[in-house]
Design a protein around this nucleic acid. Structure first.
Length: 726
DNA sequence: CCCCATGGTGTTTTT
DNA sequence: CACCATGGGG
């Protein structure tokens, strides 16, 4: 391998420095992955045992991508590619889990433990809150999701809940004491029932390594070479774990870009990068500033976005790609027409690039909703990243819940899910049953099973399954057989689709020998993502966060208006605004050749009964002129007629008192039409993409209509999602 | 007392 | 759409 020919001087230095601490500051598109891959290859070619290399990345996708590329590179070498399989890699969380599982007794888990995802943690929080009798009937009390978020944030930032409230949720301070009490109760409950949340994985691993000298020495000598990617997104525990694993004279390379720090909200600390040389004396710092990805016009725009950052980043990317046109700034009339324009743009670009080389990015998952509808209409296949995960779909979680309860009878969220299927058993009774099971209160359980044959059947099934070997796929097959009839009852509409999902789940489970590993992977790294990635040519839809580390030939960015990007929640604090700016920077730097920015002039808003005018994103407003080419809707393709058509940005609504409601912050400018907008939804026949043809029986106002679909019954549907028949 | 259906409401980002 | 509060009914 000719390293000198394949790498630029900075990259080469990073690759050739194999001993001692190295910090690589890698600008967007500067060949970061390439550098890591070549360094892996070089270590192996130097005779380093691949099993002694640990590669910690942010996502499993990134780890696999790197090992794949390295394997390709090494395939010329005898044994090279195979030996790479021995390189350990993954997310901090996945790594933590594997170590904790291996040493579960040393870590203090006699019985098994279960990893909870966010919704599970929320269930536990809800129970604790209930038990403590806090916040009952108080509307100002934060919801369980918010409480959970606060607890996790406090943990990640290593402060307490009141501390978090003080800094970023002033309005919740009156509840500080109650919330602190819930947080304590939550931690106690987890410990009592062998439950771990995401944060516990990291803290438990730290505790284990810190207190167990023997184990620490073992891992320090096992992983003699440590590489950490996306170091700017590590939080305090992750930084300490890195130091613990690297040891005194550790060979560690951290790679990151302070300008791409976008996870501060969950405790990521940019300081980690800045302090790195202090924690590891003698650190060699290498900067990669040459960009190989984007054209100069795109880079000029991204540099300008960064220029207005409050904190100074002494970094200006340069490229030799002088080709390419200016980024486009498209101004659709509304978010509805934006979806249509985006689809038209995608179709145009699809003539030049394969579909999977085009991506539409957005700030939050829900923002792609109307776009998804339009893409379906247009028959463009797409794949969404960062939305709801396969393993988060209700029916999947239900099936997995049986396995969780079999694995760990203390798994409250698991019990609640299964018990919800037993008729006559609601949350209250489910909790009582759970407690009776914990305490072995057979008298109570007998009483309940006597009343409910369904409950008895469930217990019998669980007992039978418990006697079986703990093989994930076999168990799951039994579970699906038992559960399928219940499924039909709960989801009469799309029962077949969910059934298919369960069959896929059994397939996935077949790849695991250990029940524990399967359950953990379902929570820590969604196994379905890999399967999807292998699908045929498809457009990519993604949140900006999930787009991190990826790149496409053409990138479209939608909803670039104030309160959406930057997010409404970020407006009050300067630090949050700075993170939004970096987020936009990350989004734009994903593009190689083409970049389109969409900033609709109005947004659909229920409060205003129709549209509210929207302000172009601050980040765009403050840019110097000449960096982009502005296109008004009519120019971009004869869609101006859309304004008066049935898909107008003024969806039908009955003139109501709501139209006079006090205007929100968005509505500072006068509403476009001052006359009462009466475009009453005609009664008649229409079609809906899910329910098919139906008869409109009533116009409910606010853009909603009541429709009778043969086979589905009466449904209330937003009129934007139906198509009228002539 | 507890279950379940109903309606109204507000929606970030991830391991 | 998913959460919460509410009220009828068992």
């Amino acid at each position: 391998m000719d390293f000198e020919k394949e790498l630029n001087p900075a990259q080469l230095e990073a690759v050739m420095t194999t001993d001692g601490p190295v910090l690589v500051i890698a600008g967007a598109g500067s060949g970061k992955t390439r550098t890591i891959v070549y360094r892996l290859a070089r270590l192996v070619s130097l005779g380093v045992d691949p099993a002694s290399i640990l590669l910690l990345t942010f996502t499993r996708k990134a780890a696999q991508e790197m090992l794949h590329r390295a394997g390709y590179l090494l395939s010329a070498h005898p044994d090279g590619a195979q030996s790479l399989a021995a390189v350990s890699g993954g997310t901090f969380h996945a790594f933590a889990f594997s170590v904790l599982r291996r040493h579960s007794r040393a870590a203090g888990f006699e019985a098994g433990f279960t990893i909870m995802d966010r919704p599970d943690a929320e269930d536990v929080v809800a129970k604790v809150k209930d038990q403590l009798g806090l916040g009952k009937g108080d509307r100002s009390f934060p919801k369980k999701g918010t409480v959970c978020e606060l607890i996790s944030k406090a943990r990640n930032k290593e402060t307490d809940v009141p501390g978090v409230l003080q800094r970023e949720a002033y309005h919740l301070l009156p509840h500080a004491d109650d919330l602190a009490e819930i947080a304590t109760g939550y931690h106690d409950f987890k410990r009592a029932h062998g439950l771990l949340d995401y944060d516990d994985l990291l803290f438990m691993l730290e505790k284990l390594l810190r207190e167990n000298e023997e184990l620490r020495a073992f891992y320090q000598s096992q992983f003699r070479y440590l590489m950490v990617d996306e170091y700017q997104d590590t939080n305090l525990v992750q930084a300490r774990l890195t130091a613990l694993l690297a040891g005194e004279r550790g060979n560690i390379m951290a790679v990151g870009d302070d300008a791409q720090s976008i996870y501060a909200f969950r405790g990521a600390n940019v300081e980690n990068i800045l302090h790195f040389p202090r924690i590891f004396p003698g650190t060699k710092i290498i900067k990669l500033e040459r960009n190989y990805r984007s054209t100069q016009p795109i880079l000029s725009l991204t540099n300008a976005i960064l220029k207005n950052a409050g904190e100074k980043f002494d970094k200006t990317l340069f490229t030799e790609r002088q080709d390419g046109g200016l980024p486009e700034l498209v101004r659709p009339f509304s978010d509805m027409t934006q979806a249509k324009l985006a689809v038209a743009k995608v179709k145009e670009l699809a003539g030049r690039y394969p579909l999977h080389e085009i991506a539409v990015l957005f700030r939050a998952g829900y923002q792609s909703f109307s776009l998804e509808v339009e893409l379906n209409k247009a028959g463009v296949p797409f794949q969404k990243f960062g939305g709801q995960k396969f393993s988060e779909a209700a029916h999947i979680k239900d099936a997995v819940a049986y396995l969780r309860v079999l694995h760990n009878p203390g798994d409250l969220p698991g019990w609640l899910r299964i018990l919800a299927f037993v008729p006559k058993v609601g949350p209250k009774t489910a909790n009582l049953i759970f407690e009776a099971v914990q305490k072995g209160d057979h008298a109570y359980l007998d009483k309940q099973t006597g009343k409910s044959p369904a409950l008895l059947a469930l217990f019998n099934f669980l007992d039978a399954a418990r006697a079986m070997e703990k093989n994930p796929a076999q168990l799951l097959e039994r579970v699906v057989a038992f559960h399928a009839p219940l499924l039909m009852d709960k989801y009469p509409d799309d029962y077949p689709r969910r059934q298919t999902g369960l069959e896929q789940l059994v397939q996935i489970a077949a790849g695991y020998h250990s029940l524990e590993a399967f359950l953990a992977d379902m929570v820590i790294e969604d196994p379905e993502q890999d399967r999807k990635a292998a699908k045929e040519d498809h457009l990519v839809l993604s949140t900006v966060h999930s787009s991190k580390g990826l790149e496409w030939s053409a990138v479209l960015l939608i909803d670039l208006v104030d309160e959406r990007f930057p997010s409404r929640h970020a407006l009050s604090r300067a630090e949050d605004m700075e993170e939004e700016r970096r987020l936009l920077y990350v989004a734009c730097t994903r593009a190689r050749d083409h970049l389109s920015l969409f900033a609709p002039e109005t947004l659909y808003s229920r409060q205003n009964g129709g549209c509210a005018t929207a302000m172009q994103s601050v980040f765009l407003r403050e840019l110097p002129p000449g960096l982009s080419r502005e296109l008004r809707e009519s120019i971009a393709g004869g869609l101006s007629a859309a304004r008066s058509g049935p898909d107008s940005c003024f969806p039908s609504f009955a003139a109501s008192g709501r139209a006079n409601a006090s205007p929100g912050p968005l509505a500072a400018a006068p509403q476009p039409p001052s006359a009462p907008r009466t475009a009453p939804q005609k009664l008649g026949y229409c079609t809906h993409k899910v329910f098919g043809r139906g008869k409109i029986v009533a116009d409910l106002g606010g853009g909603k209509v009541k429709i009778n679909f043969p086979g589905f019954g009466l449904k209330v549907i937003l009129s934007d999602y139906i198509q009228m028949e002539e």
